[in-house]
């Protein structure tokens, strides 16, 4: 049985809006095991992105606990959060968030610069990651010369190059057409199977559903339904 790597207990997140608390997440209880390919589904404002941000230690909970890889997110300082992300968590964003002045190769390499790899090791890992996403021939291009699908593949390569245990993808197919969306999802599925990386998506894209092993439906910050294949 795969080990549990994420455990959320009574997790809440509230924001103060016009003097009144607004709950993005309300006492959410969830756990994820290694190698899952899970989608958090729900309409805009349901709390999907907030949930991913807390798991990724980009945000901290207002209440409850988020234990990620045996670390309590609430008790981590800036450096410990950064270290957790650097070594264990990869991110894929809806808007790709590539650094426009760097080439495809450099965008992917950037993630490795923080881990003190030698230049030769970096080169090997970057080329391997680009091969995974089928962009080895585009390594010298700048992001503005890439299509949406290619840009998202670079973002995937950047996320997987350091071989993280968890990969968080926030609406990764929202800006892609159907063909590119399917292609990206197939790539992710392949990585999930071959590298054992845990994928957690936030999405409200119907195309994603058929690829998921587990679907968690969020509504107004609460888990409405959960299904497993």
């Amino acid at each position: 049985m795969n080990r549990e790597i994420i455990n959320l207990k009574n997790l809440s997140k509230s924001y103060n809006i016009a003097g009144k608390p607004f709950y993005a997440l309300k006492e959410v209880n969830l756990s994820f095991v290694e190698g899952e390919f899970t989608g958090i589904v729900g309409p805009s404002g349901s709390g999907k992105t907030t949930l991913l941000n807390i798991i990724g230690s980009l945000d901290s909970p207002s209440g409850g606990e988020a234990i990620v890889l045996e670390k309590n997110i609430s008790s981590l300082n800036h450096s410990e959060s950064a270290r957790l992300r650097n070594y264990n968590i990869g991110f894929i964003f809806q808007v790709f968030n590539l650094l426009p002045v760097y080439t495809v190769y450099e965008n992917v390499e950037f993630a490795l610069l923080l881990q003190n790899f030698s230049q030769d090791e970096r080169k090997k890992l970057v080329l391997q990651a680009l091969e995974w996403v089928g962009l080895e021939n585009h390594k010298d291009k700048k992001p503005d010369k890439l299509s949406g699908g290619e840009s998202q593949r670079v973002a995937i390569a950047r996320a997987i190059v350091k071989k993280p245990k968890i990969l968080l993808a926030d609406e990764p197919t929202a800006n892609l057409d159907a063909e590119n969306a399917h292609s990206i999802l197939k790539t992710m599925k392949k990585i999930n199977k071959e590298l054992g990386t845990t994928f957690i998506f936030s999405t409200h894209d119907e195309k994603v559903m058929k690829y998921l092993n587990r679907t968690i439906i969020l509504k107004d910050g609460n888990i409405e339904k959960e299904t497993k294949k």
Binding site: G56, L58, H78, S79, A82, R83, R85, N86, Y87, I89, F91, N97, L99, F110, A111, L114, R158, K162
Partner: peptide, 11 residues
């Protein structure tokens, strides 16, 4: 934000 998400520390 991107750099922090990738794992660079705030400092």
């Amino acid at each position: 934000g991107i750099r922090l998400a990738i794992g660079e520390s705030k400092n």
